[in-house]
Design a protein around this nucleic acid. Structure first.
Length: 492
DNA sequence: AAAAAAC
């Protein structure tokens, strides 16, 4: 279906056209008319399905540009996602001259306050900083008409439930509420019941969880073998833009350092870095100045970076949902993608859990040999040389080139330059990665560290516990439940 | 078990 059939105004259609979109995605097709009609909507879909435009277009349509109040509030789980959402809404609302603003932690709050004084009509924010602004009275939500909870399951996992409830309470109760979530655990359904009026549900089917556009592979390897295999894989697959996911912040630091040591253009991003550094690295990656982004799950959700051809899961995620999100960073906008997951022999259960959820098979790959990796490197160098030779500025080196050819044998010279153009391998630059503590083993139901709860009586009890002191959070609760898990005994 | 998020 085309956007022009969805009941949007000319100004928006113009902005859509300028963004290069033509056809609406399934979630947009279903969501946009409902939101335009003023309905509350629960959308079960992940990013990459065009979710931002699905809620963004109709809410921009509803904004009154003569009204200086914040009319749409969007809550996002991570800073990077909030920034990206703001950028997309700005693009879509430019023609209509809608003012969009983003607030998030780790950034100068005074500057944010000054921008807020310019009366944005759409505000995007992360929960903590939004609450901070509400406490200071620098954000007024009394004029909010539409509230959007983006990646609701992720916000729940991160323990933001209380913050979100607190923020919701400061918006008018007759508002329109839109909730997007990749999964629908009972707590999310409860939010739907508690804070929404007769919500309509839009669901993208489970079989569409992972797209056909991503070829999913796995490599079985011991933990200490993974790094060398990964760099060989990179050499063989010669990816364009790559995201490597590591399980911990330390892992990400070590992986990015190791990749740089072997000559790859890589950088790491995780929550312990300053926001300034995080933003700079994201920008470099988005602009194509960085080949490999190494990240924790901070980058797993929602980020839309065009041209990511490969996703490497250096560590298999313990949560199948996390896997779905990670590999969803590639195979976007009709482009083809490849994912490769490293799995140690005792993590094979996790792999099968993931396959069960995605209803897709991961194909096993053999680790490349040193020779195959070397051939891959050389093939990649050939490509580099093609574009290097095509560069018109090379003629200023002609004289020096002639001099060098007098001094050296041509084959010797080119071989030396090829040596410089290719990366170092394990024999030249050994890299040691600290082993991670092994993942907790899954029980027979395949439910390891998941947030899924038991039956009705159980959640009722939790309801009371949470109400008791008002401080207990769902993820704290989850940990306690986990320690009751009989599998824990294995660690005693 | 770890990650994310306010100062």
């Amino acid at each position: 279906m085309y956007f022009s059939e969805l009941g949007l105004s000319n100004k928006l259609l113009k902005a859509i056209q300028r963004s290069g979109y033509e056809e609406a995605t399934p979630i947009q097709e279903q969501t946009i008319p409902m939101v335009l009609a003023g309905k509350d909507v629960i959308g079960q879909a992940q990013t990459g399905t065009g979710k931002t435009a699905a809620f963004g277009l109709p809410t921009i349509e509803h904004v009154d540009v003569e009204n200086p109040a914040i009319q749409t509030l969007i809550i996002s789980p991570t800073r990077e996602l909030a920034i990206q959402t703001e950028e997309e809404l700005f693009r879509l609302g430019k023609e209509k001259r809608v003012k969009v603003q983003v607030v998030y932690g780790g950034a100068d709050i005074r500057r944010q306050i000054r921008s807020l004084e310019k009366n944005p009509q759409i505000l995007v924010g992360t929960p903590g900083r939004l609450r901070d602004h509400l406490r200071r009275g620098t954000v007024d939500l009394s004029g909010v008409q539409t509230l959007v909870l983006d990646e609701a399951d992720e916000m729940l996992n991160m323990g933001f439930l209380e913050d979100i409830e607190d923020i919701i309470k400061q918006t008018p109760s007759e508002r329109q509420t839109l909730l997007f979530s990749a999964t629908m655990p009972p707590e999310i359904k409860r939010i739907g019941v508690q804070f929404m009026h007769d919500p309509q549900t839009v669901k993208i089917k489970a079989k569409e969880l992972t797209t056909d556009l991503v070829d999913q592979y796995y490599v079985r390897a011991k933990d200490y073998e993974k790094f060398d295999i990964m760099t060989r894989m990179i050499d063989v697959q010669d990816p364009d833009l790559t995201i490597v996911f590591g399980r911990t912040k330390r892992r990400v630091d070590e992986l990015s350092r190791g990749l740089i040591a072997r000559g790859y253009n890589a950088a790491g991003i995780h929550g312990d870095l300053t926001q300034d550094r995080r933003s700079k690295i994201m920008r470099r990656f988005k602009e194509g100045h960085l080949d490999i982004l190494v990240a924790t799950d901070v980058a797993a959700r929602g980020l839309d970076i065009s041209g990511v051809t490969h996703v490497y899961n250096y560590d298999i995620p313990s949560d199948p949902d996390s896997y779905v999100h990670r590999i969803g960073r590639t195979g976007r906008a009709g482009h083809h993608g490849v994912s490769l997951t490293f799995v140690t022999p005792n993590e094979m259960n996790y792999l099968h859990e993931i396959e069960k959820l995605t209803r897709a098979r991961m194909l096993p790959l053999k680790p490349p040999t040193e020779e195959e990796a070397f051939r891959g490197q050389v093939a990649s160098a050939y490509n580099d040389i093609d574009s290097l030779v095509a560069d018109p500025t090379t003629n200023r080196y002609s004289e020096d080139a002639a001099k060098l050819l007098e001094k050296y044998d041509a084959v010797e010279l080119v071989a030396a330059l090829l040596n410089d153009l290719t990366k170092d391998d394990a024999s030249q630059v050994p890299v040691k990665i600290t082993p991670e503590r092994p993942l907790p083993s899954r029980n027979r139901n395949g439910r390891g560290g998941n947030y899924r709860r038991g039956g009705h009586g159980n959640s009722h009890r939790n309801f009371h516990r949470n109400g008791g002191d008002g401080h207990r959070r769902f993820n704290g609760d989850r940990k306690r439940r986990f320690s009751n898990n009989r599998n824990r005994r294995r660690e005693d």
